[in-house]
Design a protein around this nucleic acid. Structure first.
Lengths: 221, 221
DNA sequence: ACCTGAACACCGTTCAAGT
DNA sequence: ACCTGAACACCGTTCAAGT
C-alpha cells in the first residue's frame, strides 16, 4: 500500500475503462497513432492483451473514447459577455489548441462521422448563429461551412504533425517543399511560400473563421 | 496472343507501375480502404507479393499514386469564359464529385500534407483569387480558407461513406443519429436535422464556397 | 532487370481457462 | 465478474533465390 519512492506508475487495483482510456491518450500523445497497440497498452497496464476487451469493444471505440476524453476539456466554458462571433472563434480556437497538443485528435475527427464530439461543436456553432440573427434557412449551410472549415484545418494540422518529424517545424517543411516546385506550374504557391516566415498557423485559422463570418453577415443581410 | 472469349482480365505481359496503380484504384473503389492489400493486389495481378515493391516503394507511396491517378482526371480544363468565382466553384465541384465516386480519396487528401494533388488545388484557387483582385496580403489567408473548407468536406464525405453501409443513404443515417440526441443538449442539431429531407450535399458544399467568397469580397473592401 | 514466394515481425481480436 | 495469455487470422515488408 505504501507508495514507492521512485515508482512512477501507481499500482491502481482494478482495471477500468477510465484507466484504459487515460493510458491510450498518453500513448497516442507520446508515440502517435501508430504507437497505440493493444499489446503495448496491456503491457503498460500490466495485464493481458485480452483484458482490455472486457472494458472496451474494440480499437475504434477506444479511439472515439480517447478523442472524447481530450475534447471534454477543450470546450471553453461559454463566457457570458462575449459576442456570438467571439464565441464561435473561442470554440474554434479551443479545438485548434487541443489538436495542436494532441494531433491524432484531428485525424480522428476527420475519420468518424457524427461523432458526439463533432456534433457538440456543430451544436455550439449553430446556437451562436441563431444568436447572431442568421435567418433560419441559412443556419444549416452556415454552421456546416464553419464546421467543415474547422475540421479541414484540424485534419491538415494532424497530417502535418504526423509527416514532419518532431524536430523540424512546419514552416521549414513547407518552405522546402515549395522551393522544389516547378516555378512555371506553381507561381502562386511559390510566391505565397515567401510569406511563410511571418506566418502564424493560429492567426491564419482565425482569419479563415472571420472570412466565413463576414460572408455569413454579407449574405444574411 | 488471341483474346479469350470470356476472359475479363487480359494477360498484359509485364508488370508496371501504371498497372499496379490501376489495380489499386480498382480495389479501393470496390472494397474501400481496408480492401487494398499487397496480398490481394498481387493475387489480382497474378504475381508474388514482393514483386510490387520493385515498382513502388511502399503502401503509402501507392496510395499517393492512386490519389494522383484519380485526381488527374478530376481537374476541369479551365473554361475561358468563366468568372474567377465560377472557376473556384468548378475546382471545388470537380474535387467533390471525384471524392463522391472514390471516397477513399477524401481520406487520403486529409492524411498526407503537401501532396502534389493538394498543392495543385491550392495553386488553382490562388490564381483565381489573384484574378479576382484580392489584395496581396489577403491572398494567402483566403486561399487557405477555401482549401481547408474543401478538404474538410472531402474528409467528412469520405468518413460518411466509410461508416454508412452501402445500402442506406447518408440522410437516413444522419436523421437517425440526431433523433437519438438529447433534445435538451442538442436543440439546434435536432432542429436542423428536420431540414435534412430537402437537403443536397452538393448544393450545401457550393453554398459554403459562396459564403467564403462573399467573405473575401466583403473583407477585401 | 525483373519476378517469386517463403519468412519475419508485427497487428487486432478471440477464447478457453483461470480466480 | 473480471482477468490471463496463448492462439488465430491476418497485415506490410524483406530477401534469398530464381529467370
Amino acid at each position: 500500500m505504501a507508495a514507492g519512492t521512485r515508482n512512477t506508475e501507481r499500482r491502481e487495483d482494478a482495471l477500468s475503462r477510465e484507466r484504459i482510456v487515460g493510458a491510450a491518450v498518453e500513448m497516442l500523445d507520446g508515440s502517435g497513432e501508430g504507437g497505440l497497440t493493444f499489446r503495448a497498452l496491456s503491457a503498460q497496464l500490466k495485464t493481458g492483451a485480452g483484458a482490455i476487451y472486457w472494458h472496451v469493444a474494440n480499437k475504434s471505440e477506444l479511439l472515439v473514447a480517447a478523442t472524447e476524453a481530450v475534447l471534454a476539456g477543450a470546450t471553453a466554458p461559454e463566457a457570458a459577455d462575449e459576442t456570438p462571433q467571439e464565441a464561435i472563434r473561442a470554440v474554434g480556437l479551443g479545438l485548434f489548441d487541443a489538436i495542436d497538443a494532441h494531433p491524432w485528435v484531428g485525424t480522428q475527427l476527420a475519420r468518424m462521422p457524427a461523432q458526439v464530439a463533432v456534433l457538440r461543436i456543430f451544436e455550439r456553432i449553430g446556437r451562436q448563429l441563431q444568436a447572431l440573427g442568421v435567418p433560419g434557412p441559412a443556419q444549416f449551410d452556415s454552421a456546416s461551412a464553419l464546421l467543415n472549415y474547422i475540421l479541414g484545418v484540424a485534419g491538415q494540422n494532424a497530417a502535418m504533425a504526423q509527416a514532419v518529424d518532431p524536430g523540424t517545424n512546419r514552416t521549414d517543411f513547407l518552405a522546402s517543399v515549395s522551393t522544389g516546385l516547378d516555378p512555371g506550374e506553381f507561381p502562386f504557391t511559390r510566391e505565397v511560400a515567401g510569406q511563410l516566415r511571418e506566418h502564424d498557423d493560429r492567426e491564419q485559422f482565425l482569419a479563415g473563421i472571420d472570412l466565413i463570418l463576414a460572408g455569413i453577415a454579407a449574405l444574411g443581410g
